[in-house]
Write a protein that binds this DNA or RNA. Sequence first.
DNA 1: GTCTATATGTTGATAGAC
DNA 2: GTCTATCAACATATAGAC
Lengths: 223, 223
Amino acid sequence: MNKTPTKKAARARPLPADRETEQRILDAARQVFIRRGTAGARMQDIAAEAGVNQALLHYYFRSKERLSGAVFQQLASRLFPALIQTLGGEGSVDEKVDAVIALYLENLSRNPFLPGYLLSELHHHPERLPQLLAAATGTEPGKVLARVFGKLGDQIEQSVRAGTMRPISVEQFVANLISLCVFPFAARPMLSMVFGMDDLEFARFIERRKTELPEFFRNALRP
Amino acid sequence: MNKTPTKKAARARPLPADRETEQRILDAARQVFIRRGTAGARMQDIAAEAGVNQALLHYYFRSKERLSGAVFQQLASRLFPALIQTLGGEGSVDEKVDAVIALYLENLSRNPFLPGYLLSELHHHPERLPQLLAAATGTEPGKVLARVFGKLGDQIEQSVRAGTMRPISVEQFVANLISLCVFPFAARPMLSMVFGMDDLEFARFIERRKTELPEFFRNALRP
DNA sequence: GTCTATATGTTGATAGAC
DNA sequence: GTCTATCAACATATAGAC
C-alpha cells in the first residue's frame, strides 16, 4: 500500500520512486523541444527519443503543456539565477562584468542552442515570463530585481563620479553586456553561414570572445 | 482567354491580376506567422485575419509551406540587403557603424518583433538559411560576402595600423555591432519584464540607444 | 509502471458549386 | 476568384490489459 505512487507523486516528489524513467523522458523532451520548439515538437518523437511509448509521457507529465513547461523551467533556471546572483553579488563592477562574460560564454559553449530556444519560446509564449522570473529570483521577483539593479546602479554611479567610467544607465549597461554574450549564440546559424564558419571555427570564435569581450566592454565605458 | 490566371500566375506574376486579395492574405500571414511562428500558426487564423476563407489561401499559395516561405522571404529581405549594402559601401568605418546603428534601431523600432521571428525561424528551420542569403545578396552569395567583409576588414586593418583603432577581427567587429543593435529587440519581452518597462518606456530605452550606441561602440575600439 | 489499442479533436488540403 | 462542405492525416490524450 505504500508502493502505489499516484500521478501526484511526480509533483510532490516525496521519494525518487523510479526517477530513472522520468529523467529519461525529461532528457528526451529537452532535446526535442530545443530543436523543434514547443509548437513544432511531437509527443511521439519525444517518446521515441526516450525509448518508451507515448502513453508513458502522459503517465508522468499528464499533458504536452506540462511537459514543455517542465523543460522550459529547467532550462531557464540553468541560465538566469546565476546571472542575478552575479550581478547582485559583492564584487566590483569590473569583477561582475568579467564574471558574467566568463559564466555565459562558458555555459553557452556547452549549450549552444539554449539562447535560440529560450528566445523563441519567450517570443511565442510571453505568458511564460512570470515562470521565468520565478525561476530566476525565487519568490518576490520584483523586490529581488529592484535590489540587484539598485545595487549595481549605485556601483556604476560611484564609478562615474570617481571618473573611472562614462555615464550609463544600469539598464543600458546590462542590455549591452548580455547582448554581447548571448546574441552570437542565438544567431549562430546565421553568423556561421555568413562568416563561413564550421563548428570548430565557431568554437574558436567564441574562445576569442572570452578574452576580447571584457576588454571591449571595459573600454567602451572608459572615460 | 487572357483573363484565366492559373495557379502558376502567382509565381510568374506577369500581371497584377488581383493583387489586392493576394496582398491581404500575405499581410495577414505575416502578422500571424510573426506572432505564432511557422509551426504554431494556423491557416484558419490567417484566413480569418485576412477576411477570407481558408480555401483561398491554398488557391494563391498552394500550401502552408509555401505561404510561410513567402513571408519569411519578404521579412528577411526587409533587414539584410540594406545591411550588406551599408557594410560593403564606400563610407569610412565610423560612418558605416553610425549608418548600421541608425538603420537597425530605426527599422526595428517600427518592426519590434522582426528579430524574434527571424531568429526563431532560423533556429527551427536552418534549412532556410540559403534562402536568407539569396535574399540578402542576390546571386553568388559567397562572392558578395567575401567582397563585403574583405573590404571592411581592410578598412579596419588600416585604422589599426594608423593607430586609431584597437585590433579586432572583422567577424568580432560585425558580431558585436549586430548584437548590440538586434538583441534588445529579440529579447524584448524578457528585458521589458526584468526592467519593468512598458511599451513607452521601451521605446524611450531604444531612443537613448540611438545616440549612446555609436559612442559606446567607437569607444570600445579606441586605442 | 509499461504496454497496445483507440477515442477525440485539429489541421492542412481538396472537390465542386457559384 | 471565392465560397461551403468535406476528406484524410495526424496529434494529443485516454482506456484498459498485463
